[in-house]
């Protein structure tokens, strides 16, 4: 885990198109970005492909000299846009971005059975699964990926106030899902 200062220095190096720093950035962010995408598209192989593309796209933006204020939020923004593109291309946009549920893949379910001893964790995971997409997205960004509210606001193109409201509703909906 890098200290906040070292992380900021790393970001500056990445912005200066340092490939080695970009590799370190990848190491730090690949799991988060993958998880963010995986929760949205429900396919390991697609999540892997899109994650690779996200980092490549980010590098292209850096090479083009695009002004990136917040690298963290910007990376999530690319991931989010790529997921939307993915659904557009696969004509599944309405299904997945709407209230449709995303099921955990069978192979994941097996692993789940092995790994989850605590049934409450299973309930939480199922609760997230059954959330509508915008609630799911904000829960992942806030609690799994630990983005700040202002970073989430940048990713979702919403105001800080709207993020707070959405977060409150998402937590409420998640609790209802778990209780049910």
């Amino acid at each position: 885990m890098k200290s906040p200062l070292n992380l900021q220095i790393l970001f500056l190096k990445v912005k200066n198109q340092d490939p080695e720093a970009f590799g370190q950035f990848y190491d730090l962010y690949v799991t988060r970005i993958y998880r963010f995408i995986f929760f949205k598209i429900n396919s390991i192989s697609d999540a892997q492909d899109i994650t690779s593309e996200v980092f490549l796209k980010l590098w292209q933006y850096l090479k083009e000299g695009k002004n990136i204020k917040n690298l963290n939020a910007f990376t999530y923004m690319i991931a989010r846009n790529m997921v939307i593109d993915f659904y557009r291309k696969n004509h599944k946009f309405d299904e997945s971005i709407s209230d449709e549920h995303i099921n955990i893949p069978d192979e994941q379910k097996d692993i789940l059975k092995q790994q989850i001893m605590d049934s409450e964790l299973h309930d939480v995971l199922k609760g997230i699964e059954n959330l509508k997409d915008e609630y799911k997205e904000i829960i992942i960004l806030k609690y799994l990926d630990e983005l700040s509210n202002s970073e989430i606001a940048s990713v979702l193109h919403k105001s800080n106030g709207a993020v707070r409201v959405l977060l409150y509703r998402a937590i409420k909906a998640l609790k209802e899902n778990i209780n049910n």
């Binding site: 998880r35 929760f39 994941q108 692993i111 790994q115 964790l121 995971l125 609690y143 799994l144 990926d145």
Partner: peptide, 8 residues
């Protein structure tokens, strides 16, 4: 949840 493989 985030440490689980099922959690992404």
């Amino acid at each position: 949840v985030k440490d689980l493989s099922a959690g992404g």
